[in-house]
Nucleic acid binder design. Structure first.
Lengths: 245, 245
DNA sequence: GTTTCCACTTGATCTCGGTCAAAGCAGCCA
DNA sequence: TGGCTGCTTTGACCGAGATCAAGTGGAAAC
């Protein structure tokens, strides 16, 4: 598992064009290459515990990780979904503010924090890129606040499906009837934790969307979206939201 | 109103030690001073409309502003509260992702975006400080996701009160019985928009907290917290949360 | 083959917060 | 002084989603 990424050159990296190292020039990339190493995690494993010292930062290369906060009585809220190319860690901070968990098997490209921070002060490209990525995350978090605070259960499910579709999907039949097909990377419980619902409600609403023809389910995880516009309407988003079919 | 800040030197600025310009050295500060200007807004005024071109960035000097997202059918969610020293704007972005509104009368210290961005590429202090502030905002947004997704109405109110208390309060009687006293800067409706509730529910829960002695109200806005620990328990936060009385 | 397990579905009931409606209350203008 | 106007409180009722409780189905284990 680990070997499949070891010794990979950065310019062959599948996520490089979206990750923090995008737009780095050749010598910057070499510096990064010197301090990087890969780590693998199995589904369910906790990558970082809330409050832990974090001695590395890095990017998700494959798989899905999640950021979760938990109250003493066990109520949990997922506060972020990390897909390939997303950045993990806070340069300049010592301890993690929430748990990071591997939702599926995950491979990460890691940098020890100190050398990375040093590099960041020297290479404005990286600092700039990191600021842009952080601003994107902030926008995503705030968009999610609207979902959590004001949307109905059905709208929440539709919102989650369209977010996953947007980042994770492959287009099936091309052309005008461009269906979107993907596998849900989350259990019903994980979806519930992301959406601020119970898993029963998630299940019921998915059944309802299926009954109404908004989605097509094969098995429990394989989803087809016959009409992305319809799904976005169900999500309550402005008609297009910059989404490209 | 405007005149009271015009021509002020940065090193006399009341919010300077917390704002984006903190830790700048003298010549950096002079550069900022060259491109800064003040703008005032009245309570209720919209500072930036969602989707607008943003040609400036800046810091809140006094007053309170809020970031809000609105759905087509009118449901609105406040996604951020900007207190003095908080930064407004996204270097490197053209259009605003949400409305910025003056909740009270607001004075802002603005910089035209282009010169600020240029300055940022030259002065690592500012870029670094901005990244740190953005990471703080991200943490705050994610903490709020837990509030929106998993807390009860009573816990939501208690959470909001303790956040305002933390940043906005003055300590009354010093010593062991350190009461905390402040004026609510938000209407019941604005609180509801922040908490994902209706204004009626906000009103009822405030009445309940008052009845139970968690808070003391004089009039509708003046709040005394006799026991901050008690309030934080009601908010469902971990006992101390790093809060210092 | 069948047992077990786990993720999921479905049903019955309850409850918290939303909705609708009516006052209360302070500041403001005439 | 009196009536507006806008913010707030309070009450009565309702419903979306939570809770509690079976039941289903498919894949791995024996």
């Amino acid at each position: 598992m680990k070997a499949q990424f070891d010794h990979t050159n950065c310019d062959e990296c599948p996520i490089r064009h979206r990750a923090v190292c995008a737009h780095c020039d050749v010598d910057e990339l070499e510096e990064l290459e010197d301090i990087k190493y890969y780590r693998s995690f199995e589904a369910g494993q906790t990558i970082i515990w809330s409050g832990d010292q974090m001695n590395f930062v890095g990017s998700v290369v494959s798989g899905i990780a999640s950021l979760t906060q938990t109250m003493e009585d066990g109520r949990t809220q997922m506060v972020g979904l990390l897909l390939p190319s997303d950045f993990v860690g806070r340069p300049g901070r010592d301890s993690a503010p929430y748990d990071v968990q591997a939702t599926t098997d995950v491979v990460m490209c890691c940098f020890r924090k100190k050398p990375f921070e040093d590099l960041m002060t020297l290479t404005p490209h990286i600092a700039h890129r990191l600021l842009q990525m952080t601003l994107d995350e902030l926008d995503a978090a705030r968009e999610w606040m609207l979902v959590l605070g004001r949307k109905t259960a059905r709208e929440k499910i539709a919102s989650l499906l369209s977010i996953i579709a947007r980042r994770d999907a492959s287009v099936g039949q091309k052309g005008m009837s461009g269906q979107i097909v993907f596998d849900l990377p989350l259990t019903r419980e994980a979806m519930a934790d992301y959406l601020g619902l119970t898993l029963e409600t998630v299940s019921r609403q998915i059944s309802a969307l299926k009954r109404d023809g908004v989605i097509v389910l094969e098995g429990k995880r394989h989803v087809t979206i016959p009409d992305m516009g319809r799904l976005m309407e169900e999500a309550g988003d402005d008609s297009d939201g910059g989404f490209l079919i």
